[in-house]
Computed example of a mutant assay.
Amino acid sequence: MLLAIEQGNTNTLFAVHDGQTWIAQWRAATHSTRTADEYAVWLSQLLGMAGLAMGAFDGCIISSVVPQSIFNLRNLARRYLHVEPLVIGENVELGIPIRIDKPSEAGADRLVNAIGAHIVYPGALIVIDSGTATTFDVIAADGGFEGGVIAPGINLSMEALHNAAAKLPRVAIQKPQRIIGKDTVGAMQSGVFWGYIGLIEGLVARIKSEWDRPMTVIGTGGVASLFHGATMAIDHFDSDLTIRGMLEIWRRHSTKA
């Protein structure tokens, strides 16, 4: 079995693949100071509830955008799973062209998404990943990573609005029934939600215009489901995009090994 650990700035996903399908997934808040022992206690409890054991794994792959956490995640795999993890970004051949000025600056999550999207969706793609940041990544028809756009995430924007304006409350993000808010909470929800729909639609249109050829748009990430049905700019919503890319990288590396 394979344990895939996909760590973002806000949440860390642990997913178990049995060789045929994903059989379990859990999320934890990302804390860069969490030790391997703390991860092990948490993970062992969840594995036990699913009828699984720490010793059942023969592989582990890690994708993290939090460099200071990689040491502890690697130790989790070594000490408790008894496997040497494959860490994306550390001399791991991804098998795709990275066509940006400084390839080393491309985030592991963005490259994994590129692979996960290319193996399923044909042609040129725009992958919109909605998390702490909202990224718009352009994937060429041959799978090459062409760069993209990075914007603040919707939760980050809502939090910044609350923190910077003394009289504005902290509110939950949801799709408002109307554009024009009738109270402060409704006005904030409308501004952030429909503002992000405008951001998505505007940037997708501009990217397509600059690319000047047909493109398919894929939405993924922790809050992507919020936008389902709210815009025609996104063609497909795919919650498993990242872990599919990690599985493909693992399989390619295992085949070469």
Rank of each mutant, 00 (worst) to 15 (best):
P122W: 00
P122K: 04
G123K: 03
A124D: 13
A124R: 13
L125W: 04
V127G: 01
D129I: 04
D129V: 06
S130Q: 13
T135E: 01
T135F: 01
D137K: 00
V138C: 01
A140S: 14
A140L: 06
A140M: 08
A140H: 10
A141G: 07
A141V: 02
D142N: 13
G143D: 05
G148H: 02
V149F: 05
V149H: 04
I150H: 00
P152C: 02
I154N: 09
I154G: 10
L156R: 07
S157P: 00
E159P: 01
A160R: 08
H162Q: 06
A165W: 02
A165T: 05
A166S: 13
L168F: 04
P169G: 11
P169H: 12
R170P: 09
V171E: 14
V171N: 12
A172E: 15
A172V: 08
I173Y: 08
Q174D: 14
K175D: 04
K175C: 12
Q177G: 15
Q177T: 15
R178K: 13
I179N: 00
G181H: 09
K182G: 10
T184G: 02
A187F: 13
M188K: 10
Q189I: 13
Q189R: 15
S190Q: 13
S190G: 15
S190N: 14
G195K: 14
G195V: 12
G198L: 08
L199C: 11
E201A: 05
E201P: 06
G202F: 12
L203Q: 08
R206F: 01
I207R: 02
S209V: 11
E210Y: 10
P214K: 06
P214F: 03
M215R: 01
T216F: 02
T216N: 06
V217N: 10
T220S: 09
T220C: 15
S225L: 09
L226G: 06
G229C: 12
G229T: 07
A230D: 00
T231K: 05
T231G: 09
T231M: 01
T231F: 06
M232H: 14
A233G: 08
I234N: 09
D235Y: 01
D235R: 02
D238M: 10
S239N: 07
S239G: 08
S239Q: 13
L241H: 10
L241R: 10
T242A: 13
T242Q: 08
T242N: 10
T242F: 03
G245I: 01
I249E: 09
W250E: 06
R251A: 07
